[in-house]
């Protein structure tokens, strides 16, 4: 305040004060902006350029050709195509299953039952644990001979499953772990959504003669649709970037026989050994395009859904 008051006492300095007041907000923002520009904006834009430069050398900044060469080579790479299809399968399995389980769990936690507090803690625990550390724990749980998963299956008479050693079981193992991983976040958001639903609607439905399941599907789920949409979008984006889940489960390999390539794993592999920056960058750009397209489609669906019936 005192600094602002000063110029008004000396009218001759007014223009300088005005100039300063225009720069002032930018000065305050500068430290943060510098961080954003250097560590977020620049790398993002740089990746776009790198993806267009063939045989790019990060140190010398040399490259052989500028164009779509990297994209052609990546899209023609059978490992990348496999990675893309694996990632799609992963997303298509994890998101619907996780959303359904989360919806059921959130609905259960929303009932005032005994031990609700205990279950809430149990469900939210994965949220505060490290994906890699828990991934290692899951590696033991999935162990063919000593793992608890096979032990539980043996109780119902199912023979041991080679979760982490057989090609056909590695995707289910990854999906199970992936679902487990995004459940807490999804449950928290859905539970918050459920708690904001006015209980009056349930009473109204009950008086009209509705029972549990019908109320759930006809009242609860539609009222929760915006929240379900939000978790689906966020989870889809994160599931497309599946890598952290893969790495600890298979000791850093993409599945027991390198059969579980995912897009991010492909990018990671392009960068290990002799780094192929251009290819890695163009693979990242393809992933970005896929996620962007899907998110836009989801938003479009949501808008259309919201727009219906408004007369």
């Amino acid at each position: 305040m005192s600094r602002r008051a000063e110029p008004s006492e000396r009218p001759d300095s007014l223009p300088r004060f005005h100039r300063l007041s225009k720069i002032e907000p930018i000065l305050y923002l500068a430290p943060f902006l510098v961080g954003v520009i250097v560590f977020t904006l620049y790398p993002v834009i740089h990746v776009v350029f790198i993806s267009l430069m063939e045989d790019y050398n990060y140190l010398t900044r040399a490259f052989s050709r500028f164009g779509l060469g990297n994209y052609i080579s990546v899209l023609g790479n059978k490992y990348f195509i496999q990675a893309l299809s694996n990632t799609f399968i992963y997303v298509l399995l994890v998101i619907p299953i996780a959303t359904c389980i989360a919806l059921a769990a959130a609905n259960m936690l929303n009932q005032k039952l005994k031990l609700t507090g205990l279950f809430q803690t149990a469900y939210f625990l994965p949220m505060v644990t490290s994906v890699t550390a828990v991934g290692l724990a899951w590696r033991f749980m999935f162990n063919e001979r000593i793992g608890i998963v096979n032990f539980l299956l043996s109780l119902v008479g199912i023979d041991p499953v080679g979760w982490l050693t057989k090609a056909e079981w590695s995707m289910p193992a990854l999906v199970i772990y992936g679902i487990w991983n995004i459940l807490p976040f999804t449950i928290i958001l859905l539970l918050a959504g459920l708690q904001s639903v006015n209980p009056m609607f349930y009473t109204a439905a009950r008086v009209d003669g509705s029972k549990g399941a019908r109320i759930f599907f006809k009242i609860t789920v539609p009222l929760l649709a915006p929240t379900i949409m939000l978790t689906t979008i966020v989870n889809t984006i994160s599931a497309f970037k599946v890598f952290n889940e893969l790495f600890p489960l298979f000791k850093g390999q993409a599945g027991p026989f390198y059969n579980l390539y995912t897009v991010v794993y492909f990018i990671y592999e392009q960068m290990s050994g002799k780094p192929r920056l251009g290819r890695a960058a163009s693979a990242a750009m393809v992933l970005f395009a896929v996620i962007l397209a899907l998110t836009l489609i989801q938003l479009l669906i949501q808008r259309r859904w919201r727009g219906t019936g408004k007369g």
């Binding site: 006015n198 009056m200 609607f201 009473t203 109204a204 439905a205 009950r206 008086v207 009209d208 003669g209 509705s210 006809k218 009242i219 539609p222 009222l223 649709a225 019936g309 007369g311």
Partner: peptide, 29 residues
């Protein structure tokens, strides 16, 4: 239970289902 009693209830805040049209609201029971 309420559904067996055959009562119609109008709530203070009306409790119309926001995701349904007027026709769907009336149709629900």
């Amino acid at each position: 239970p309420p559904e067996r009693r055959g009562v119609g209830l109008v709530f203070q805040n009306y409790a119309l289902y926001p995701h349904m049209t007027v026709a769907q609201n009336i149709s629900f029971p």
